[in-house]
Nucleic acid binder design. Structure first.
Length: 297
DNA sequence: AAACAGGGGTTAA
DNA sequence: TTAACCCCTGTT
């Protein structure tokens, strides 16, 4: 059958999706936006989304989603992989910038996953001053501790519900080994459980206000707030500026050291309302090619 | 082998 | 504006 431009075919235990463009599993899963997809020996990735696991592989413009049905595609995967968005159009607009053109060449198959707001919030609190393998371990530890077991044979656990984390004691949260971030997880969970902030509220604010609102949560500063807004599909004109993005902007664009505010204003000027996507291509490009790492402290 | 640096920032001073 | 921060891995 056909669904919104994609040809989908149900096979036993597996879904085949054709006509998938601007899509590269490595670019998507290794560009730092998600923490629950693990590369497998067959080159595919196994991940846990909305309480269900899936294994995804790709051959050209065809993707195979193991443990998914056509109905799952319509209800979950189409949106999750942002398949309704034309990334060719985004890239064409950004490629007018010669530097960006290079960055896009590196990560041409990046797509911004539409991830769960609550899971992204906690995941990016954990990401502060941390590295990806450890963030992944910590998120998984939280899931094992407080999520639901969805596949005993492979120890797959869903991300914990807000109410469950909110009820956990700080001592319990500490067992996920997130260190000084545990107290942020603890307090933020309680605030979120009493609906301190909802995604719907943020959608109705402008980006600056939404950012400010998120930063009221413990453990959420400017960078983490931008990541939460972007990777939860709430706002797209943000420019999450971590050390990599700072370095790549300084090296390729500004040619000097620059502050956070300066970089973000420059990005807004240069990339308009596509700053989020621009940031993601730059981040992936900078990390893969270690741009900005030479002779910088 | 034991010490040390530093990591996809935030907080508190 | 700047140091401390949990934990862990990779480096001296």
């Amino acid at each position: 059958m056909e669904y919104r431009g994609y040809i989908i075919e149900e096979r036993p235990g597996c879904l085949v999706v054709r006509n998938v463009r601007d899509f590269n599993l490595t670019h998507i899963f290794e560009c730092g936006q998600c923490f629950r997809w693990i590369k497998q020996p067959d080159g595919g990735y196994t991940g846990i989304v909305r309480g269900k696991w899936a294994h995804v592989t790709q051959e050209g413009e065809t993707i195979y989603i193991e443990n998914a049905t056509a109905q799952d595609f319509i209800e979950v995967w189409f949106e999750y992989f942002d398949l309704g968005t034309d990334y060719s159009e985004i890239k064409t607009l950004l490629e007018k910038d010669e530097i960006m053109k290079e960055a896009i060449k590196t990560g041409e198959g990046i797509r911004i996953l539409r991830q769960d707001f609550w899971e992204i919030l906690i995941s990016f609190i954990i990401s502060a001053n941390n590295m990806i393998p450890r963030i992944m371990k910590t998120v998984d530890a939280l899931a094992v501790m407080k999520g639901k077991c969805i596949e005993p044979a492979r120890a797959f656990y869903s991300f914990p519900e807000t109410a469950v984390l909110a009820q956990a004691s700080l001592d319990e949260i500490n067992q996920c080994r997130a260190g000084f971030r545990c107290k942020y997880i603890h307090r933020t969970s309680q605030l979120m459980n009493s609906n301190a902030i909802t995604k719907e509220q943020l959608l109705n604010m402008d980006t600056a206000a939404a950012r400010k609102e998120l930063m009221k949560l413990p453990g959420v500063g400017p960078k983490v707030a931008d990541c939460i807004l972007f990777f939860s599909g709430t706002k797209f004109d943000v420019f999450p500026t971590d050390v990599w993005v700072k370095r790549v902007m300084e090296e390729l664009y500004l040619k000097r050291e620059a502050g956070l505010k300066e970089i973000q204003e420059f990005a807004k000027e240069r990339f308009g309302n596509l700053t989020g996507y621009a940031q993601q291509y730059l981040f992936y490009h900078a990390r893969l090619n270690k741009i900005g790492m030479t002779d910088k402290k």
